[in-house]
C-alpha cells in the first residue's frame, strides 16, 4: 500500500535521509522510531507528498506520487489524515471548525451536521465542551488531541501520526493509543506513526521500524524488536546513553 524506496533527502549540506526503504501493508500499523532529528518527520512528509525526494520514490498503491498531476494529488490527499507534531491547528478558526474542515469542504455537509460530527470526534479524543473555543485557548496536549480529531474526522484510509502521544499525561496517552488501535480495527486504516514512546510503540504497532542515519536499520514485530540483537536498536529501546549511538556534545 505504502512503499518507500531508497529515499534520499538533503537540506543543503544536511543529508537527512540516505536511502530509507520501508513498506507498509494495507491495514497495517507501522511505527517508526528513531532519535530526535533523525528525520522521522521528514520521512512522513514525503509519504503525503509535501517534500519531494532528491532520489528514490514513494508509491501509494503502486503509483509513484511524484508522477501525479495536481488534481490527482489533491484527490489522493483526501484518502489521508495527518496529525502534525505541533498540531498545526488553524488559529483563525474555532476548534470545531478545525475538526470539521474537510467535512464541510469536501463532504459538502451543512455547518450544523458537520459540527455534530466534530463534537463526536472531539469526544472520541477525550475533549468535551471545547468546540467553541479558539485553538489559542487550549493547552499543548489539548491541541494535539484536536489535531487528532481533525485527522480522523473524514474517516481517511491512511493515517499518519507524528508523535501522537508526546506532551500528554500517561493516562491520556494510553487513551490515545486505544483510539489508534480502535481506528485500525474498526475502519481498517493503514497507519504510520512516529513516536519516541516505546510503551506506545509496542502497544499500537504491528511492526516497528527504526530510522538511524537516514536509513531504516531494522523492521520487525514488537517482539522481534524487543529481543533484537541489533546494538543500535537495543540501545534506543532501552534508552541508554552508552552504545553505538553517540550524542554530540554529551560524553557518557
Amino acid at each position: 500500500m505504502i512503499e518507500i524506496v531508497n529515499l534520499h533527502k538533503s537540506f543543503g549540506k544536511n543529508q537527512v535521509l540516505r536511502g530509507a526503504t520501508l513498506k507498509v501493508e494495507k491495514g497495517e500499523s507501522m511505527v517508526v522510531i528513531g532519535g530526535s532529528g533523525s528525520g522521522k518527520s521528514v520521512l512522513i512528509k514525503h509519504i503525503i507528498g509535501f517534500l519531494k525526494p532528491d532520489e528514490g520514490s514513494v508509491m501509494i498503491d503502486s503509483v509513484d506520487i511524484a508522477n501525479l498531476s495536481e488534481n490527482e494529488r489533491y484527490e489522493t490527499r483526501k484518502r489521508f489524515g495527518m496529525l502534525f507534531q505541533m498540531a498545526a491547528l488553524f488559529d483563525s478558526m474555532k476548534v470545531w471548525e478545525n475538526v470539521a474542515f474537510a467535512l464541510i469542504r469536501h463532504g459538502k455537509l451543512k455547518d450544523k451536521e458537520a459540527k455534530e460530527i466534530a463534537v463526536e470526534k472531539l469526544r472520541a479524543v477525550g475533549l468535551v465542551g471545547v468546540e467553541d473555543l479558539m485553538p489559542s485557548e487550549l493547552s499543548g496536549g489539548m491541541k494535539k488531541r484536536v489535531g487528532l480529531a481533525r485527522a480522523i474526522a473524514h474517516s481517511p484510509e491512511i493515517l499518519l501520526y507524528d508523535e501522537p502521544t508526546t506532551g500528554l499525561d500517561p493516562i491520556m496517552a494510553d487513551a490515545i493509543n486505544d483510539l489508534i488501535i480502535e481506528m485500525k480495527k474498526r475502519l481498517s486504516v493503514t497507519s504510520v506513526a512516529i513516536t519516541h514512546d516505546m510503551h506506545s510503540a509496542y502497544k499500537i504497532a504491528d511492526r516497528i521500524a527504526m530510522l538511524y542515519e537516514g536509513r531504516i536499520v531494522q523492521t520487525g514485530t514488537p517482539d522481534e524488536i524487543r529481543n533484537t540483537d541489533n546494538a543500535i536498536v537495543r540501545q534506543f529501546i532501552t534508552g541508554s546513553a552508552v552504545g553505538p549511538i553517540k550524542i554530540e556534545g554529551v560524553t557518557a
Partner: peptide, 11 residues
C-alpha cells in the same frame, strides 16, 4: 506553524 501543510493534508 505548518498550517499551510495542514491545508494540503485536508486536500
Amino acid at each position: 506553524t505548518e498550517q499551510i501543510d495542514a491545508l494540503e493534508t485536508l486536500a
